[in-house]
Every structure is written in structure tokens, then in C-alpha cells.
């Protein structure tokens, strides 16, 4: 006997993500899901972002890692709120974990929540967390073929941050190649070239962030 089901798979995560999105929208909080490989500079980018917007925009961070509180401690050292999710082996965050984290934060004063996903350019791109915007970050030492190799992360992103541009003079990284590859997959992708170490290029990224918040 054949049963017609036509039920969405992973609907539970989608429902949970939709509830997160609604909750944050009602509170007028911009939520961003940041995805990248390990070691590309997500946490350093967030530290710089928080410090440069201090006094103007209040940012909180939800950190995802397999284990340790190291990243949340780095964020807290800036004075910002941070919640660490230790996934204990899971390679991505899911919407329900983010729900719990949101309700642990003191959200009254928060303008923007940035979720730093588990360092992984593959699995996190399949899981909606309830974010308003998705940012994919690639760093110069990783190589300019990242988009060609891992297209899905780019196809679903709103912003591409190219980090560690202070290293461009030492490495063979073709900025135009990765830009071209990424724009093939997402026509209206916003691209910012930054160095979280020197602060180069941050003006445009911070302008986008504060404008998107409004």
C-alpha cells in the first residue's frame, strides 16, 4: 500500500528557526549567522566589530564550537555578552540550540546578535538558525578556490567577508576570482575585503551592519 506523505524533511529545525526569527524581529534585534572554515578569523573579526561599534551598537554573540569556552571568553573580554554552545562533536549548530542561547542572554539592551557557527564550510549551510542575514567569511591563506569548492555556503549567503587582506602581498590569492565565483551563485551578494588585524576595510562592513540593523 502506498501512502502519499509530502512532508518537509528537517521541518522541526525549520519551524524552530521560524520561531527564533519571529521572536527576534518582535524584539527588533538583527540576527546574523556567520559561517566559515576553522581558523579564518571569525572571532577576531567579531572582537574588532564589537570594539569599533562600542557605545553605538550593542552586540551579543552566540558561539558554537565542539568544546571549550575559549571563544566566548574572548568575546566577554570586550565587554559584550557571549553564550558558548559546546556541540560535543556535532559539526553545526541547530535552531533549537540557538533558541536556548537566546533565552539565556539578557536581551533588553541588544541591537544585534551574531551567531558564530561551528568552524565548517559544509554542514552549517544546511541549517537555518532563524537569522535575518547570513555571512560567509573566507580568509586569504585558505586560497581563492574556496567558493568553487564549497559553493553551497556562498549560494545561501547575503554577505561575503574576505578576511586577512593584510596577507595579500605575501600569498597568491586572487580576490577577483573568488568574487567572480561567488557572484555567479548569488547576484546580490555584498562583498567586503577586510583585515580583522589592522582594521582595513571595516568601515564598509560596519556601515552595512548598522544600516541593516535599522
Amino acid at each position: 500500500m502506498k501512502l502519499k506523505i509530502n512532508k518537509k524533511i528537517l521541518a522541526k529545525n525549520e519551524d524552530c528557526a521560524a520561531a527564533n526569527r519571529k521572536f527576534l524581529k518582535d524584539k527588533n534585534i538583527l540576527c546574523i549567522n556567520m559561517i566559515s572554515s576553522p581558523g579564518s578569523g571569525k572571532t577576531t573579526t567579531l572582537e574588532k566589530t564589537i570594539n569599533m561599534l562600542k557605545g553605538k551598537v550593542n552586540i551579543a554573540v552566540i558561539e558554537g564550537d565542539l568544546q571549550t569556552q575559549l571563544d566566548a571568553e574572548r568575546i566577554r573580554a570586550t565587554g559584550a555578552q557571549a553564550i558558548q554552545i559546546e556541540t560535543k562533536g556535532a559539526c553545526h549548530l541547530s535552531a533549537a540550540q540557538v533558541t536556548n542561547a537566546i533565552h539565556t542572554l539578557n536581551i533588553d539592551q541588544i541591537d544585534i546578535i551574531i551567531i558564530e557557527n561551528v568552524g565548517n564550510l559544509v554542514c552549517p549551510s544546511d541549517f537555518d538558525l532563524g537569522e535575518e542575514k547570513r555571512v560567509v567569511l573566507v580568509s586569504v591563506p585558505e586560497g581563492d578556490e574556496k567558493c568553487a569548492k564549497y559553493p553551497k555556503a556562498f549560494a545561501k549567503a547575503d554577505v561575503l567577508l574576505i578576511n586577512k587582506i593584510d596577507l595579500l602581498e605575501h600569498l597568491d590569492f586572487d580576490v577577483n576570482r573568488i568574487k567572480k565565483d561567488a557572484l555567479k551563485l548569488k547576484k546580490d551578494l555584498k562583498i567586503f575585503e577586510i583585515s580583522a588585524k589592522t582594521g582595513d576595510g571595516f568601515e564598509d562592513w560596519l556601515n552595512w551592519l548598522t544600516k541593516t540593523k535599522k
Partner: peptide, 12 residues
């Protein structure tokens, strides 16, 4: 297209 569970068939 979304991920969809379309049909299940049970033995007769």
C-alpha cells in the same frame, strides 16, 4: 525544491 518525504510504501 525543498527536501520532501513524498511517499511510503508498505508491504501488502
Amino acid at each position: 525544491a525543498p527536501l520532501l518525504l513524498e511517499e511510503i510504501e508498505f508491504e501488502e
